[in-house]
Amino acid sequence: MNIFRLAGDMVHLLSFVVLVLKINATKSCRGISLKTQELYTLVFVCRYLDLFSNFISMYNTTMKIVFLGTSFAILYLMRGHKVIKVTYDREQDTFRYLFLVLPCALLALLIHNAWTPFEVVWTFSIYLEAVAILPQLVLLQRTQNIDNLTGNYVFLLGLYRGLYILNWIYRYFTEPHYIQWIVWISGIVQTILYLDFFYYYIKSWKNNVKLALPS
């Protein structure tokens, strides 16, 4: 494992910590898209189907369990917690799941590395992860007064895939035969979706003003 991969994973992990912190500290999930959280949970469930059948390392297994556990915990907080669930911006979080899930499912059926159920579902999770942030970005644009933790959460999520791109470049040059077109192209698309957000995030940070996305 190289430094970019480790940094990417740690940033990803940190994004969960920041999100749980925001929800718990403020007892509010205002500005957080439940749709994006549900899509991420679906992504992890589909990707980690091999959790118990394919052992790579203690690190991998632990991280997978943490990602799955945290995702379900966030869903519980947003949908089941008495105090928190009433703060959910239901009327604003209107993105349709099917616009994302259906094209990703079709693409996974058409473009994959092997025609096996496991491989197709895994590929679907890669495609879905690339676009799962869209409901959150739309909600962010509609939210006035984005709080710092929410802004930081989205920034960390974007940074994580960016660091993975560096990891793939590193692996390409250090490991023979390391070619992963599906993962690379999806990861690049995923990172590009954040560029606009990054621009405004960094601008607000440099000018020391509150983050606001133009609508």
């Binding site: 991969r5 997978k64 990602f67 590395n113 070619i179 992963q180 993962v183």
Partner: peptide, 10 residues
């Protein structure tokens, strides 16, 4: 070699 994808990543 375009083999199975990198299942060693998260």
């Amino acid at each position: 070699l375009v083999g199975l994808n990198a299942k060693d990543e998260l």
